[in-house]
Amino acid sequence: MANNNLDQLINFYKLMLKVRIFEEKIDWLFSRGLLGGTSHMCIGQEAVAAGISANLNLDDYVISSHRGHGHLIAKGGEVRKIFSELMGKVDGYCQGKGGTQHLCAKEIGFYGTNGIVGGGIPVATGIALSIKLRRSRQVAVVFFGDGATNQGTFHESLNMASIWGLPILFVCENNLYGMSAPVSKMTNIKDLARRADAYNIKSHIVDGMDVEAVFARSGEALNYIRDSQKPCFIEAKTYRHCGHSKSDARVYRTKEEEKCWREKDCLDVLKTRLISLGFAAEQMDKIKAETEQEIEAAWKLSEKSEDTPLSLGLKGVYKDG
């Protein structure tokens, strides 16, 4: 049991580190002008995706937001294909036609990142409806931010999921800001989980910096959904250490606040826990070095792959047949 637990934590460490190093690489590429467009990194929020996805099966659905690299990697996505997508290469997840905010990997149940704040919530609700109609034991998990809970689609979808009894897990990653807007200014309640009460949906509040807590709570929530065929809601209290997107001076928050959350960083929390369980620091350094190599190798491969030609870019507007 104890060993299983340690293995699980090591896996979390590997996964979260992979997301962190990937996102840092993206940030670095932007700073060098080596990537165009934009990207919303999830640095600081890795534990939410990792903890929840560890409870999912391959055929469960994940629907993500604009901040979705971590969700995709946690569902089993390949970093090379994400790099390639961001660089407009043919071997990207969507041949460069989607980009960071429109990533999709159907074969692993990843039904898309989404450029419209709140846009994925009704889509996920419809996917959950399809599960119900098919009478399978799958679930749909939809990730969104605190800001998205002020969209009409959020309220409309929670209501429909509740009245129809849909197998969906709503995951609100409350990172305290929607772009520059503090949640405390845009919402007059302390816990966004309270919004689920209005629709008679069971909810949990969880420390999003603690992957073990996320894992345990979401495991409970997913069992509840599969057994009861009712929706559930998780509010994960978290923080993005980085800016909203690339090149953000973060003028809307204080350095003290940032420092305070840095001290609660999900990877540091996990490291401390691993050390307390007797896992050697050198082992962690080794994992880190390997992960860095893996990300670097993936980037190199993507860099070398082919740009998507216009002939392909003009295709696929409609499905034939």
């Binding site: 629907i63 846009g119 009704p122 889509v123 996920a124 419809g126 996917i127 959950a128 409806l129 599960i131």
Partner: peptide
Amino acid sequence: SENSIVGVGVGAAMA
């Protein structure tokens, strides 16, 4: 809930 009715249709169609 027009926007989400269509959204639910989109999701069900994708699945």
